[in-house]
Design a protein around this nucleic acid. Sequence first.
RNA 1: GCGGAUGUGGCGGAAUUGGUAUACGCGCCAGACUUAGGAUCUGGUGCCGCGAGGCGUAUGGGUUCGAGUCCCUUCAUCCGCACCA
Length: 924
Amino acid sequence: MDYNFREIEAKWHKNWAAEKAYRVENDFSKPKYYVLDMFPYPSGAGLHVGHPLGYIASDIFARFKRLSGFNVLHPMGFDSFGLPAEQYAIQTGQHPKITTEINSKRYREQLDKICLSFDWSRQVDTTDPKYYKWTQWIFLQLFKSWYNTKSNKAEPIDNLIASFEKEGFSGNEDITAFTKDQWKGFSEKEKSDTLMHFRLAYLDEAMVNWCPKLGTVLANDEVKDGVSERGGYPVERKKMPQWSMRMTAYAERMLTDLNTLDWPESIKEAQRNWIGRSQGSSLQFTIENGQGTIEVFTTRPDTVFGVTFVTLAPEHELVKKITTADRKAAVDAYVNAAKNKSERERQADVKKITGEFTGAYVLHPFTGKKVPVWIGDYVLAGYGTGAVMAVPAHDSRDHAFAKHFGLDIPQVIEAPAGWDFSKESYDGKEGKCINSDFLNGLDVKDAVKRAIAEIEKRGLGKGKVNFRLRDAAFGRQRYWGEPIPIFYKDGIPTPLNESKLPLVLPEIDKFQPTETGDPPLARASDWKHQGKYSYEHTTMPGWAGSSWYYLRYMDPNNDKEFASKDAIKYWQNIDIYVGGAEHVTGHLLYFRFWTKFLFDYGYLPFNEPAKKLVNQGMIQGVSHFALFYPNSKPKTYISFKAAPPADIPTLHLERVDINIVKNEMLNIEEFKKWRPENADAVFKTDPNGEFECITEVEKMSKSKWNVINPDIVIEQYGADTFRMYEMFLGPIEISKPWSTQGISGVHGFLKKLWRIFYNENGLALSNEKATPQELKILHRTIKKVKEDIERLSFNTSVSAFMICLNELNELKCNKREIMEPLLVVLSPFAPFITEELWRAIGNKISILKATFPTVNEAYLTESTFSYPVSFNGKTRFMLELPLTLTKEQIEKEVLASDDAKKWIQDTPIKKIIVVPNKIVNVVI
RNA sequence: GCGGAUGUGGCGGAAUUGGUAUACGCGCCAGACUUAGGAUCUGGUGCCGCGAGGCGUAUGGGUUCGAGUCCCUUCAUCCGCACCA
């Protein structure tokens, strides 16, 4: 009887579905374990072989934990709000809901084929109103909260209002001070505007890329060279009201808590850079003619005596005010040019130095000297105060600017001898201050402290921490997203009462912006609160739903709470979270931010969502190209091998569908069918008639024609082979191109396993007692696989299984005592074949309910060890010796051996190193 | 530019704590069985050398009895960030 994986897989697939085999109960009596995959966006292209890599790994892990007695939460869902479905809707009129449903169904089928043990009854779909009700609810909590820097946590905004009513407010950067009586005298609108500066979800004016022609806001990467990528229409930078999330309030906590996480160092480092904490000082420069002050932020207050100019961002609000009449034309032109460049473009041409003198001067806070004020787009409006004090001798950017415009470069920190300041600035943070009045002679580190003290003493500013992290924009001019539960009453943004949630996405006739440039939701003209108040028309961004979905899986059908306290208390945070590294700074930040917010309110007993994070590598595609002569008529293709080397640089490449190529050889007939315009093309082949393509490793993508669909691989080899092969490719965190070279090895392994159970006469398993040698093989494998799974080294466990089977085969072992536990160990990797064999040998209960065998160390103990004996570090021979020998005895045995004599001859022995149970090294 | 990784046979990769480099698989070579092989089984397979032996983990150096592993140098590739004051 042959291994018929198609029959077996169909049978158990059906059986497990009927038994609801993967159903997870909130069974608080058992220890919990939470294994989560990042949920996918269900795109129209379906899954390719790269997606399941992480899913298979986490599935093996989850199955292993189940067999080890844990109650394992291992759910899956869909992050289904998003642009592609909306784009498709605009083009075809098909409602995104339909597209989403079709795609999700397809994903589910594909995932099931791979036999991933998800409890689908806990599925989360971000577009389901029952789900986004709670996304909206969290938004409202954020809206109703502010960040109290004293208690260092989020608190109800009502507390703040109470304090305003009691003591007024002493003022900060955004808001001037007011007394309690002034507060009471504020209009509703004034109160609302004031509170907006505190709310964690707030409405603000923000710069966006506005495309008037498309009537919409574009993301940075949708803008190329000042025009929209789609359509090529002009794009301008424009201030628009935008909902934002005050994520910066959590910057410090997000930074320090990284240290508590078992995440890849690279990810933590990326987050640290992204949060970008820098310590420094604010400093006021008085404008010459009493027009106020310019505040700068600097990390190098120690270099303050080296300031020769101040640079403002072109968008800085003082630019208009301080520019002198004679400089106005030039400055205006510069500001306008900068305005229409996207942020990315501005950052792109770093080398080009531009700027304008405003004509204005500020006074140096310590020397009182006149310092010119420039504008330059190397200063970013969004960071710090949008103004820098330029120290060209000790900051390379200031240096480049000063050099370009011929400004002074006075040195204030000692540089290494022979430093040429006309060429390069000395940015180093070592050295003593010179030419710096009260800072002279101090080391940089001390000078920074001293300068800040002096700045604070004179009331010029104060020591301060700045973050690169910005608040997250939370509104999108799109249809396919969660409605923001806000309505406008007399122009005041008002939260919807929680009892009215969910605020359901209204039906509209077209999915485009209105003719007046309002978001698509404005088309729903009678969609109004209580029939009169207009709702917010922007929707939430893609990351809203994914910022808390891991909590919903714990209690997915709860309509009273986002998840019950008991469920959260039981399941806690994610024990292991698996997903792609592309979410480093987006999702993983937002997800931590929302968790911390919910923690502040006591909704969660933990303040980080995922204890351990694993990034699976990407599986790349191998793209194939046919070479052809440009402008040839008829079009002439030439095989890579047949092409004269001299011609190759002149040849052009044409992408070829990977499905019509085999071993790099193009199927010419299929190619002609695929591209009918090539029916008459000429194909110059190799002498043997073959046509060789050239290949390149790229991201797997539909547009590159290099996508391998897992369904096809499963059809050919079965899901068990597919699962094991994906794991066998290498460590999960490494990216690698897909290749089916080698899949036959894994498939052969499963066939070999099958043949141990079944011979020509049918099922044949021996009930003989296992020998110590056989038991040793089994227990060594159990141990190795267990350890490998725990450290997520699945490729090595696959090889351990192969070694095990090879050794058992050598001993012709087909004993139940060995094979039965082996099936359990293998079952997380190959669930179908192991279940089939498990039942075939008489088990009535599914292998899913089995127990992972424990290692019996007694079978593994050895009495001898085969010592590699090396001379001067080079291994020369092996010597088997009892483990009971002492170092001295080993030394004696080695020296007495014939092999050793041959190597030593009459050379004197300098030293012998004996490491028991490891190695012997003779130094001669 | 900054940060993070990675570099081992023809290929994917193993070597978990400084202790036999190349496990396991593919491919390749030889053989067995076979009408047949894209089935199965057996043996071989880092490089140079007839051999003894020598050389080998990107490069050059160092520490060590001993280095793929630790330290320094250089190079290459990939990823992320990028005027952050």
